[in-house]
């Protein structure tokens, strides 16, 4: 049997079906996307080669794109603030021996199981200016005529959407942190406690260093998902008001499908892909350097 598995033909035979599917659904579409990004094409009219024209326009003249980049950066920071930090805190709390911790873990994880559209709809009715729970709570607290259109105020709309996204993904990151917490050896904590370490010292000197790989994974996931952010925003605000919640992926969608600029939309998709890859490599490198320093 061992010999069978070391046979190259056999290995090839086993990996070939998956490899064919992978090539069909990843490198080939990516290559097609890259090729399309050099074209002017509305799917129906004649295809025109545009060289680097789409990229030049994107970087030099497209103000919506730069507005979206700015929003994406805010989105990235917000994603970390509203997803990773609460997830870490909740993981620490729910890793201790408190009553009903399994119940609370399930409750925190539950939104992960919902589709983004469903989550967006839930939060739409949280923020709704007439029937939204948020305004009703404020009215209940004594402000009888309070009616505020949270999602229609361009100053706070992006923040409102970020809270919804944070609510959805906190449970996911919490599970990652919990899995990291379980591998911290009990004797390390015990000996630190014997040496007189307090809770803060334990957290700073043992828990956080041990959780570094988890921070790396969650950071990569949160940042990459920030670049891809689309569904929640599309349902909640559609990128408005006044493009206050307009992200790169929405710009790509708008250009591709609303304006039938398939070539230009592809060039935005290429930039998003490059940003995702570069960020992932950057974070990996950053954490690798830190691990060596530890």
């Amino acid at each position: 049997m061992h010999k069978l598995y070391s046979n190259k033909m056999m290995i090839l035979a086993f990996i070939l079906p998956a490899l064919i599917l992978f090539v069909l659904f990843v490198p080939i579409p990516v290559a097609f996307l890259l090729g399309t990004s050099f074209l002017k094409w509305d799917l129906l009219s004649e295809i025109r080669f545009n060289g680097l024209g789409n990229y030049i326009y994107l970087f030099t003249k497209d103000t919506y794109f730069w507005g979206a980049v700015k929003n994406n950066l805010f989105w990235m920071v917000g994603n970390i603030a509203f997803s990773i930090i609460p997830a870490f805190v909740l993981a620490i709390i729910l890793n201790s021996k408190i009553k009903g911790r399994n119940f609370f873990r399930t409750v925190v994880f539950l939104p992960v199981a919902l589709s983004s559209t469903a989550v967006a709809m839930i939060w739409y009715f949280v923020y709704h200016h007439k029937i939204g729970i948020l305004n009703q709570i404020i009215r209940f607290l004594g402000f009888a005529n309070f009616e505020y259109a949270w999602l229609m105020d361009e100053r706070i709309a992006l923040l409102c959407v970020l809270i919804a996204v944070g609510w959805q993904w906190t449970g996911y990151y919490m599970v990652i942190f919990l899995s990291g917490l379980t591998v911290i050896p009990g004797e390390v904590i015990e000996s630190a406690e014997i040496d007189g370490a307090n809770r803060w010292q334990l957290l700073k000197s043992i828990t956080i260093p041990y959780l570094k790989p988890m921070f790396k994974i969650t950071a990569i996931l949160a940042i990459v998902s920030s670049f891809k952010g689309f569904d929640n925003v599309y349902v909640l605000t559609g990128g408005g008001p006044n493009r206050a919640t307009y992200l790169m992926a929405l710009h790509m969608y708008d250009m591709t499908f609303n304006r039938a600029m398939y070539g230009y939309g592809s060039s935005i998709a290429v930039i998003i892909t490059i940003l995702c890859v570069l960020t992932t490599l950057g974070i990996s490198k950053l954490f690798a350097r830190d691990s060596m320093e530890v």
């Binding site: 033909m9 056999m10 090839l12 035979a13």
Partner: peptide, 18 residues
């Protein structure tokens, strides 16, 4: 012989998948 057998098994597997 074993190599040939392996190849035949693999080929059959692929064919059935297809």
């Amino acid at each position: 012989m074993k190599k040939t057998l392996c190849f035949v098994v693999a080929a059959l597997l692929l064919f059935s998948l297809t």
